[in-house]
Design a binder for these strands. Structure first.
Length: 524
RNA sequence: GCCGACAUAGCUCAGUUGGUUAGAGCGCUAGAUUGUGGAUCUAGAGGUCCCUGGUUCGAACCCAGGUGUCGGUACCA
C-alpha cells in the first residue's frame, strides 16, 4: 500500500484513451467477426501491418519537419530515424503494397482491422486510440471497384443489424468538386481557396447552410466568441458553390418505408423543394445541370454515372447507396469517388440528450498513395469502418445485452467443504459447455458473496450448505428474477424466509444434470 | 492553436458579504439478520477544499500566475 500520499502516483488515464469493459469487448469482437465474414464473402483476404511505421512512410510529417509530433504520435529510434504510430490503415497498406508490388495479385483485394492513433484533441465519441476495419482494392482503376466497395459497405451495415433506412452509404466524387471549383474560383488546381471551400462544405451537417455561407465569404464567429476566418469568396461565387454542394437530399418526414426510389425531397438553392420518386440517376441529372451551368467540363461526372449504373445493375438503390453532392471527406489524398456511411437514427445518452452518431465510416479513391513509393501509378480505392463509434451506436440501441452477463457462481458456505465445491464447479463447467462457471475464491462471508455475484452480473448462484448436502440438494437462485421481486420488499424477515426466485434441485455429489438443466432454463 | 466555463469525499454537488471541529445525497465497509445481493435502520471509513505566490489577525472563499478538466472552434495527412 502506498503510505506516502504526497508522492504516490495518481491513478489516471491520459485524455482521449479509455479502458474497455467486458460488454464492450465482447460486443466489438462479435461485430468484427460479422464484418470479417462480409469482407471474406466478397473475396477479400486478410493482411496485417504493424502499429509502427517510419514517419515518412505515413505522410507529410517527415522526421525533419518542424513538429514531428503534430497530429501523430512519433518518437526517434536509436538510429535517430523517426517512427510513428499509424494514424490510419490506408497509408500502411500503400507502403506494404509498394514494398511487395511484384508479389501481390492485382486487383489486390484485402482487409485488415486494428488500433490507430491520433494525437489530437479528443471529443465526445472521439478518441486518440480507436479501432478501424478497412477493406481496399489496389490496382483497379475502374468505377466497378468503387461501386463494389459501396455495395459491400451497405452489406456490412445490414449484417451488423442496421435495417434499411437506418443507414445510408453516401457517394460523391472529388473530380466534380475540383472541376467546378476551378471554374468558379478561376484558379486551376489545388489552392488555399480551393481547400478552404472544401473544408467549409465538409461542415454542412454541423453548421448548416448559413454557417457554410459565412465560412465561404467573410468568416464566422462561434458561440464562444472565437472567430474563424472565411475563404473570402464573393457573394456570387459562394452562391455558385452552394448551388451544387447545397443540394440537400433528405428523406421526407412522411416516408414510412425505405424502399428504393422512395419519396425524397430535393431542396434547391433557390429555396424551392421538389418532392418525388428520385433515383441516383435523377440526382445525377440534377448535378449535371448545375455543372454545365457553371461552365465546368461535364466529363467530371463520368465516374459517378458509371458507379450509378453499376449500383443499379446489382440492384442497390438509393435506400442503400445514394449519390450526394455534399459529401467531401478526407481532403488531401482522395482523387476520385468518396464515400461515407451515415447512421440516420437518433438515440439518447444517459442524460436524455439526443445523440446523432452520423458518420461511422468512410473512404474513397486514392490513386496517388502507392505511387508515392514507386515509379508507377497504382489506382486504389477503399473503405474504413469506425468500429469504436459503431460499437457505441449499437450499445446505445440495446439494453442489458448478453454481452454484459457474468458467470454462474458457486458460493462457498462452509470453508471445510471447499473440495466438494470445487468438484461441483468442475462438473457443472463441463456440463454447461460455453456457459462460464466459477467458484467464489475470495475471503468474505456469505452475504458478501451474494453482493459479489450481483456485481459480476451473474445470472444465478449455486448455494449448498450442510443442510443441503445432507439432503442431497443445492439451491439455485436466479439473481435477475430476485431483483425484480425485490421491488416490492417491505419486511426483511418475511422476504428472506420466502426465498423468492430460488429453487431446490437434486444433487448427489456427482450428477449435475438437474442443476445444468435449471441453469439453462434461467439463461434462456 | 483560439474562445469560454469550471476545479470541495470514490461519484454528483452544497457551502461561507473571508472566522475556529468543511457538509449532504449516492456509493463503499460493517452490524441489526449462526446461511441469502437488491428494501429499511444504525455505525464506520474516506478530504493537502487543484498548485504556487500574494492580500489579511485569519483564505476552501479575495487577487495574480500556473496546472488540469469540460464545452465550442480550428487543424485532422
Amino acid at each position: 500500500m502506498a503510505k506516502d500520499k504526497a508522492n504516490r502516483p495518481k491513478a489516471r488515464l491520459p485524455r482521449g484513451f479509455a479502458d474497455r469493459t467486458p460488454g464492450e469487448i465482447r460486443r466489438v469482437a462479435r461485430m468484427m467477426e460479422t464484418i470479417r465474414q462480409v469482407y471474406e464473402r466478397w473475396g477479400f483476404e486478410p493482411v496485417e501491418t504493424p502499429l509502427i511505421e517510419f514517419a515518412d512512410a505515413l505522410g507529410k510529417f517527415l522526421p525533419d519537419a518542424d513538429r514531428p509530433n503534430e497530429g501523430v504520435f512519433a518518437f526517434q529510434d536509436d538510429d535517430e530515424q523517426w517512427l510513428s504510430l499509424r494514424y490510419d490503415l490506408t497509408a500502411p497498406l500503400a507502403r506494404m503494397v509498394a514494398e511487395n508490388f511484384q508479389n501481390v495479385p492485382r486487383p489486390y483485394k484485402s482487409y485488415r482491422a486494428g488500433w490507430v492513433f491520433r494525437n489530437e484533441k479528443p471529443g465526445p465519441g472521439r478518441f486518440r486510440q480507436f479501432m478501424q476495419f478497412d477493406a481496399d482494392i489496389v490496382g483497379a482503376a475502374s468505377p466497378l471497384a468503387d461501386a463494389e466497395i459501396c455495395m459491400m459497405a451497405a452489406d456490412t451495415m445490414e449484417a451488423l443489424g442496421f435495417a434499411r433506412g437506418e443507414y445510408v452509404i453516401r457517394v460523391n466524387s472529388r473530380k466534380i468538386l475540383d472541376a467546378v471549383l476551378d471554374k468558379v474560383l478561376g484558379i486551376e488546381g489545388p489552392s488555399e481557396k480551393h481547400l478552404g471551400v472544401l473544408r467549409a462544405i465538409d461542415k454542412l451537417d454541423r453548421l448548416g447552410r448559413d454557417g457554410v455561407y459565412e465560412l465561404l465569404t467573410d468568416g464566422r464567429k462561434d458561440e464562444s466568441g472565437a472567430f474563424t476566418d472565411g475563404v473570402g469568396l464573393t457573394d456570387l461565387q459562394a452562391r455558385a458553390v452552394q448551388s451544387l454542394f447545397g443540394i440537400e437530399v433528405r428523406v421526407s418526414d412522411n416516408s414510412e418505408s425505405f424502399e428504393d426510389d422512395q419519396q425524397i425531397t430535393l431542396e434547391m438553392e433557390d429555396g424551392s423543394a421538389q418532392t418525388g420518386s428520385i433515383s441516383n440517376s435523377d440526382i445525377l441529372a440534377q448535378m449535371f445541370r448545375v455543372v454545365t451551368l457553371t461552365g465546368a467540363d461535364p466529363d467530371c461526372l463520368r465516374d459517378l454515372f458509371s458507379i450509378s449504373d453499376h449500383l443499379q445493375a446489382s440492384g442497390y438503390g438509393t435506400s442503400r447507396v445514394r449519390i450526394d453532392p455534399s459529401v467531401v471527406r478526407g481532403l488531401e489524398y482522395y482523387t476520385g469517388a468518396v464515400f461515407e456511411a451515415e447512421l440516420r437514427f437518433e438515440v439518447q445518452d444517459e442524460k436524455g440528450r439526443p445523440v446523432r452518431f452520423g458518420s461511422v465510416g468512410g473512404g474513397g479513391r486514392y490513386d496517388g498513395l502507392v505511387g508515392r513509393f514507386i515509379s508507377q501509378d497504382v489506382p486504389a480505392t477503399g473503405f474504413s469502418v469506425g468500429v469504436s463509434r459503431l460499437a457505441a451506436a449499437l450499445a446505445a440501441r440495446e439494453t442489458a445485452s448478453a454481452d454484459d452477463r457474468g458467470p454462474v457462481i458457486v458460493t462457498v458456505m462452509d470453508r471445510d467443504a471447499v473440495p466438494a465445491y470445487q468438484a461441483l464447479t468442475a462438473q457443472l463447467r463441463r456440463a454447461l459447455g460455453d456457459v462460464p462457471v466459477e467458484m467464489y475464491i475470495g475471503d468474505s462471508g456469505f452475504k458478501a458473496q451474494m453482493k459479489y455475484a450481483d456485481r459480476r452480473n451473474a445470472p444465478c448462484v449455486i448455494i449448498q450448505g450442510a443442510d443441503e448436502r445432507a439432503a442431497g440438494i443445492v439451491q439455485i437462485k436466479d439473481l435477475a428474477a430476485g431483483k425484480e421481486a425485490a421491488e416490492a420488499i417491505e419486511d426483511r424477515a418475511e422476504w428472506v424466509a420466502a426465498r423468492p426466485a430460488q429453487v431446490e434441485v437434486a444433487y448427489d455429489g456427482a450428477d449435475v444434470s438437474a442443476i445444468a438443466a435449471k441453469v439453462r432454463e434461467i439463461l434462456s
